[in-house]
Computed example of a mutant assay.
Amino acid sequence: MSTLILIPARMASTRLPGKPLADIAGAPMIVHVARRGAEAGLGRVVVATDTEAVADAVRAHGFEAVMTRADHASGSDRIFEALTALDPEKKVETIVNVQGDLPTIDSDIIGASLRPFAEPSVDIATLGVEIVRDEEKTNPNVVKIVGSPLSATRLRALYFTRATAPWGEGPLYHHIGLYAYRRAALERFVALKPSSLERRERLEQLRALEAGMRIDAEIVKSLPLGVDTPADLERARQILSN
């Protein structure tokens, strides 16, 4: 499959404004994410942004950037605009959306996101990791995957929730917000209106499930640090400085 890695980046974060350009070990955070994408070795890596300063910083470090509109409601809308601009002839078959605030992500798990596509009926693929800390099981900021096990390392997603689910004995899985789309699935997804469960849980991926699309999750071992707060940023600096 022809694969394009797209990294959406916007400056208007409410909790950490300007975070794509936050310095980590001598480079902007968004550049670290682009490096991890390149290390995955899947194909072309492009940052999709609405801010010239972000595009300039990315290009100054040898990576590609594309400008997108500033009024997108979600990262998936931004990457679809970028895809349309970058690949008008529709040669790209698979798009990997890597969040721009994951500077410590292991490049191996970016590649792992494509494994569910061995099953032709999978529309969207994503990642999960088993929750080991009890406090995360009840934390609404930790999104959980509720799914049917297909193998030791894969779930077919039935639901995503901020609640503690499923009930009863057994593992709980933390959803890692990295998505791989078949091109037709991304085109269909961005054309859908926000769904009722999506609005209630504030989880965009529920729109796809409510529309009958299939999402499978590859279970990986490492959980990347998402940088949402100043404390997260300091932790990322410590990790990448070492």
Score class of each variant (00 low, 15 high):
Gly41Gln: 03
Pro166Trp: 12
Thr138Asn: 04
Met1Cys: 14
Ala55Trp: 00
Val190Trp: 02
Asp134Ile: 13
Ala112Asp: 13
Leu206Gln: 00
Leu127Lys: 12
Pro17Trp: 00
Arg214Tyr: 00
Glu210Ala: 09
Leu86Val: 12
Met29Glu: 10
Glu130Gly: 03
Val122Leu: 00
Ser196Trp: 13
Leu155Asp: 09
Pro120Leu: 07
Arg199Phe: 07
Ala22Phe: 02
Gly75Leu: 01
Ile30Tyr: 08
Glu210Ile: 13
Arg235Thr: 11
Gln99Ser: 08
Glu136Phe: 07
Glu234Ser: 11
Arg59Trp: 03
Leu225Gln: 08
Arg188Leu: 06
Asp232Gly: 01
Glu187Cys: 00
Arg69Phe: 11
Ala40Leu: 07
His175Ala: 09
Thr84Ala: 09
Glu89Cys: 12
Trp167His: 14
Gly111Pro: 01
Phe63Ser: 05
Leu158Asp: 15
Ala165Tyr: 09
Val227Asp: 10
Leu206Gly: 02
Ser148Ala: 14
Met213Pro: 10
Pro20Leu: 04
Leu114Trp: 05
Ser195His: 14
Ala57Trp: 11
Pro171Gln: 15
His175Val: 03
Glu39Trp: 11
Glu52Leu: 09
Ser76Met: 09
Leu186Pro: 02
Gly26Tyr: 01
Ala9Gln: 04
Gly18Pro: 14
Glu234His: 08
Val122Asn: 00
Gly212His: 03
Ser74Trp: 14
Ala231Trp: 09
Val46Asp: 02
Glu201Pro: 13
Asp101Ile: 03
Ser2Arg: 03
Gly111Ser: 11
Ile79Ser: 00
Gly212Glu: 05
Ala184Val: 09
Ile7Phe: 06
Asp101Arg: 10
Gly147Val: 12
Trp167Asp: 15
Phe189Asp: 12
Pro17Thr: 02
Val142Trp: 02
Ser76Thr: 06
Ala236Asp: 08
Thr3Met: 03
Ala60His: 14
Arg162His: 15
Ala73Ser: 14
Ala152Trp: 07
Val47Gln: 03
Arg199Glu: 14
Pro166Glu: 11
Leu4Ser: 05
Ser151Ala: 15
Glu135Lys: 10
Leu4Val: 08
Val96Leu: 05
Leu178Trp: 02
Val142His: 05
Asn141Val: 06
Leu42Gly: 10
Ile131Pro: 01
Arg156Trp: 09
His61Phe: 15
Ile215Pro: 01
Val143Asn: 00
Asp77Asn: 11
Phe63Gly: 04
Tyr179Ser: 06
Glu204Lys: 01
Ala152Ile: 06
Leu21Cys: 04
Asn139Thr: 13
Ala157Arg: 09
Pro103Lys: 05
Tyr181Pro: 03
Leu86Pro: 11
Pro116Trp: 09
Val58Tyr: 05
Glu136Arg: 02
Pro140Val: 02
Ala191Ile: 00
Gly100Val: 02
